[in-house]
């Protein structure tokens, strides 16, 4: 399976290149035009990224995140979820690197094939860093009103937690 995944990128690149080349596209010129846009886009989202990551770091390092996770703990015990899993559910939409590190620590502590380890794996792999996606995507085109994107994204994350518990218990 790793091989199949590793082959995806070269295959896609070949298809794009061959298709463009035989359709008579000036492939290198087209590439340069796109890459130039990439330069502008990256610079354009940098202020948004700085604002977001600074705020996430403040929430994490001030101890606020630990308090939030602590509040969620009794809730986890009430529904029969490993309490260690809940901090992951809180962390996952906010910080990608933070939740990866926490998932790794859970896998090491409980073992990747234990119930808690499987739940941590499923939850971490089935969700994305919701706030990062929302801020970067909207920030890249100057959108300031987020409409109902935040509740929709968080509802998806909550649903992922419920489905994680259900599927892991169902399949084990």
């Amino acid at each position: 399976m790793e091989q199949a995944s590793a082959a995806a990128l070269p295959v896609i690149l070949c298809v794009i290149l061959l298709f463009g080349f035989f359709r008579g596209v000036d492939v290198f010129d087209a590439f340069l035009a796109g890459a130039k846009e990439g330069l502008r886009t990256t610079l354009g989202i940098l202020p948004t990224l700085i604002g977001l990551m600074l705020a996430v770091a403040v929430v994490r390092d001030s101890g606020l995140l630990d308090i939030l996770c602590g509040l969620a703990r009794p809730l986890a015990e009430a529904v029969g979820v490993q309490p260690e899993l809940l901090p992951l559910a809180v962390l996952r939409p906010i910080s990608g690197s933070g939740s990866s590190a926490y998932t790794l620590s859970l896998l090491e502590e409980f073992g990747p094939d234990s119930g808690a380890g499987r739940m941590a794996s499923v939850l971490a792999a089935s969700t994305e860093t919701t706030f990062y996606a929302i801020t970067v995507y909207f920030g890249s085109c100057g959108i300031k009103k987020l409409s109902y994107s935040v509740p929709a994204g968080l509802l998806g994350d909550a649903a992922a937690l419920a489905f994680t518990v259900l599927t892991v218990q169902l399949f084990s």
């Binding site: 080349f21 492939v27 796109g34």
Partner: peptide, 22 residues
């Protein structure tokens, strides 16, 4: 993060342009 993103951003938008023009 932006610096590490810069390379893939430019490369992928470059390939996207080829895919679009083709």
């Amino acid at each position: 993060l932006s610096l590490s993103l810069l390379g893939s951003m430019c490369a992928w938008l470059g390939f996207l342009r080829i895919a679009e023009e083709g």
